[in-house]
């Protein structure tokens, strides 16, 4: 693999490498992500670069996170039963309030009933 002229700039494989390395600015990164979602060959390149550079992660020492982080994850993904019980408590479940939007949002942590 000898040095080639700068005309290489369009090599999608190198773009994948730059994306994985993390040197792209915000806009270029978004652009690479769009491509990642749409272009299987590019996605394979990205995966291959992740495996190539991934071993550097082994140098990062683990640090125990504070407990509340898991609590936040668990709360965010908590199953819906609380809604059912809210409904029973309220007697006649008003259909209007049954379905929060499918997506998780932080607010849902506290607004079960």
């Amino acid at each position: 693999m000898s040095e080639r002229p700068e005309a290489e700039t369009d090599d999608p494989n190198l773009l994948a490498g730059e994306y994985v390395l993390g040197v792209l600015d915000h806009d270029a990164r978004r652009e690479a992500e769009r491509r990642l979602a749409a272009d299987p060959a590019f996605a394979r390149d990205v995966a291959a670069w992740s495996e190539r550079l991934g071993p550097l992660l082994e140098e990062i020492a683990p640090v125990s996170p504070p407990e509340h982080v898991w609590a936040g994850v668990a709360a965010a993904l908590a199953p819906r039963p609380p809604r059912a019980s809210c409904r029973t408590e309220r007697g006649s479940g008003a259909p209007g309030r049954l379905s929060p939007p499918g997506r998780w949002r932080p607010a849902s942590l506290r607004s079960r009933c």
């Binding site: 990062i60 020492a61 640090v63 125990s64 996170p65 504070p66 982080v69």
Partner: peptide, 27 residues
Amino acid sequence: SAKLYGVCLRILGDRTEAEDVLQETYI
């Protein structure tokens, strides 16, 4: 999570931000 928190901390250099990102990560 300890590994991933280490990664977040390394990049962000800030505990609060790293905790936030860690939580988003597992979601």
